[in-house]
Structures are given as C-alpha cells and as structure tokens.
Computed example of a mutant assay.
Amino acid sequence: MRLFFLLQRAAHQLRTAADRRCLAAAGITTAQLGALFAVQDRPDTTQRQLARTLGLRESAVTALVARLTRAGLLTRRAHPHDHRAVVLELTGDGAAALRAARPEVDRFNDELRTLLGGQEFLRTATALHRLAHWEPRDP
C-alpha cells in the first residue's frame, strides 16, 4: 500500500504544480491541455475515442469538452458516418493555447529530468506508462 500512497501523493503534487504553470502560461489546466493535445494528435477524434485516450469515463469527457467548447478551444461537429457520434476539432484559439503552454510543459519536464536524472527519468516514464495501461486481475 505504501507505493500506492506515494504514487497518489506524487500525482497530486505534480498535477497541482503543473496546473498552476499551465493556467499562468495558457489559461488552461493540465486536464484541458491533455484533451487539446489528444485532439491535435488525432484529428477527427470522437468524444468516445478521447475518453479512451485520456482513460476517463465518457461522462467526464462530455463535461470537459463542454468547457473547452465554451472557452472556444474546441468545436464539435456531427460525425459523417455515425449520427450518434461527435467529431472534435481544435480551434485557432485551442492551437494558440497549446503553443502558449508548450514552453512551460517543456520546462516542467526538464525540471523533472534534472530531479530524477536522465536515465531514471526514462525508466520512470516507462514504468508509469506500463502502470497506466495495466489491467489488474479482478479478485
């Protein structure tokens, strides 16, 4: 249990620090930043695909997309082949927010790389990637 506690504490510490920086640099949170990067990286993504990419419930993504749409950072349009789906697109303001946040994200990663050391940074990133995609067995 101690490892789980440390992961939770580290995640909270990192998210809080990164949110402050992203809000100051681009007016968006790290959750919003992640959604914008995902839409930028995969044009014509749907809300369902975005939920899978972010590892969130669809209801959480619906609320997140609504906030980003109200802020003018994303647009929604009907899916060309599935009348139930909505396709997400980055707006010019959304792309500008990503450009504004990028230097701060790079600085933050550089600080973590310095804190952990280059090799340890890569090992940690690899381990966290595996944990993020792990599917534990049910009891």
Rank of each mutant, 00 (worst) to 15 (best):
L68D: 07
P80R: 15
Q40P: 03
T45W: 00
V61T: 09
L116K: 12
R107E: 13
D82N: 14
L115T: 12
A78V: 00
A63R: 15
A11P: 02
A101Y: 05
R102Y: 09
E111T: 01
L73K: 11
T126F: 00
T91F: 10
R9N: 03
P136E: 01
G72W: 03
C22L: 15
A35Y: 02
Q40R: 14
R102D: 05
R48C: 05
I28G: 06
G72L: 12
A26L: 01
E135D: 06
F5L: 12
L64W: 00
Q49A: 10
N109L: 14
L33Q: 07
G27R: 12
T30V: 14
A95S: 14
H129Y: 06
A95D: 04
V105P: 06
R67F: 04
A71K: 14
T30Y: 10
Q40W: 02
R130M: 11
R2L: 12
G94F: 05
D41F: 13
A100I: 05
P136Q: 12
L128C: 09
P136N: 06
C22F: 11
L88N: 04
Q32I: 01
A17Y: 08
P139R: 12
P80K: 02
T16R: 15
H129S: 05
F121D: 07
R57N: 08
A38G: 00
R137I: 08
R21H: 10
R102Q: 09
P80V: 05
R70G: 09
A17W: 08
L6N: 12
L74M: 03
G34D: 06
E111Y: 10
E111A: 12
R137N: 01
H129F: 08
Q47Y: 07
P43F: 02
D106C: 05
T75W: 11
E111Q: 15
R137Q: 01
L88H: 00
R20Y: 11
A18W: 14
L122T: 07
T114D: 04
H79S: 03
L36V: 10
A78S: 14
L98K: 05
R113Y: 01
T53K: 05
D110K: 09
G117D: 03
A51L: 10
E104Q: 09
L98A: 07
P80E: 11
H12E: 13
L90I: 13
G27P: 03
P136T: 08
G118Y: 00
L33V: 10
L33R: 04
G92V: 02
V65P: 04
L7H: 07
